[in-house]
């Protein structure tokens, strides 16, 4: 079979943002029992695209459909595309059965990004909950790649239980470094677990940062982001220095299908990343 052949030219794909580019799965890594990471490389001779931390792609699985998944790789490494997926719906269920060599369609990258450029010269606190670590991993890569531009860097990560920890080897590696503080907590654990138990906000008082010169990047379930933001505010962090990321249904990724609306925002183009002050009302209204 000739993988290099495609009936569409690069120009055609660029002219139509609804057409996917094809990528081959080069490696599948299971992070937890229900979460896996695909390493993808472009075929059809296409260039790898650049992305910014926090952006997402629409991933197409033949015969099933498309799903929005954030990019979880290193933004300074454009040789491969990384996507960490949790098995939850029809597309992700099919996606988990794909093997190395299989082909996916990719549209993107879409959305805005975690503004790492606005954190230059400041302390950075990255707070992730559950699968929310995946969209934040590019931030950690970026901060560590450009370590001298930032002051203290802290990663606080909370998840359900020790077996649900994403990127555990990497977290250990980062934890061993002296230029980033990494704390992990779980909601519950058996007594073998040596780490913290409790919700992620419990880690905030232990983190060292200057509230007047800090940028916080928070990603996780809405309720976790709300409580985290409220705790950061207790430490006198300004609302517009707390960034959170929202999740909604996406069908197009480019602002036309309407599904990702949150009040005045289209999450796909105005988000997914917002400062807390732009979102706080929305987070406190039900079913908005």
């Amino acid at each position: 079979m000739d993988l290099e052949h495609n009936t569409l030219t690069k120009e055609q794909i660029e002219a139509n943002p609804m057409l996917p580019r094809r990528f081959r799965i080069d490696k599948v890594t299971w992070e937890t029992q229900e979460t896996f990471t695909h390493e993808l490389v472009p075929i059809d001779g296409a260039d790898m695209f650049r992305f910014k931390p926090g952006q997402f792609n629409m991933i197409y699985v033949f015969g099933v459909g498309e799903i929005a998944i954030s990019i979880s790789g290193d933004p300074d490494d454009d040789s491969r595309l990384y996507h960490t997926t949790r098995v939850v719906g029809s597309v992700t269920r099919r996606k988990q059965n794909l093997v190395e060599g299989d082909i996916l369609g990719i549209r993107g990258p879409f959305g805005n990004h975690w503004p790492v450029e606005k954190a230059v010269g400041k302390d950075v606190v990255v707070i992730a909950g559950g699968i929310g670590l995946a969209p934040l991993r590019p931030v950690i890569y970026y901060l560590l790649n450009h370590r001298d531009q930032y002051k203290r860097i802290t990663l606080l990560y909370g998840t359900r239980s020790p077996d649900k920890i994403l990127y555990s080897r990497q977290l250990k590696e980062w934890g061993a470094r002296f230029d980033i503080d990494v704390s992990v907590t779980v909601d519950s654990a058996d007594t073998d677990w040596q780490g913290h138990v409790g919700i992620v906000t419990k880690l905030i008082p232990k983190a060292v940062f200057d509230p007047n010169n800090t940028v916080a990047f928070v990603c996780g379930p809405e309720i976790m982001m709300r409580f985290t933001a409220m705790d950061l505010l207790k430490f006198d962090m300004p609302e517009d220095k707390i960034y959170v990321s929202m999740e909604r249904n996406h069908k197009c990724g480019i602002g036309f299908c309407g599904h990702c609306q949150l009040g005045s925002y289209f999450i796909c183009k105005d988000g997914p990343v917002f400062t807390y002050d732009k979102l706080k009302s929305y987070l406190s209204i039900k079913e908005v």
Binding site: T185, S188, A189, D190, T191, W193, G195, H196, V197, G198, P205, K206
Partner: peptide, 23 residues
């Protein structure tokens, strides 16, 4: 230092439900 609070959970042995630390 840090202290683990545990309870004997149903069928799952001892479960740590909270950890407490400095301060």
């Amino acid at each position: 230092g840090s202290v683990a609070l545990a309870i004997h959970g149903p069928g799952s042995g001892n479960v740590t439900i909270d950890t407490l630390g400095d301060g």
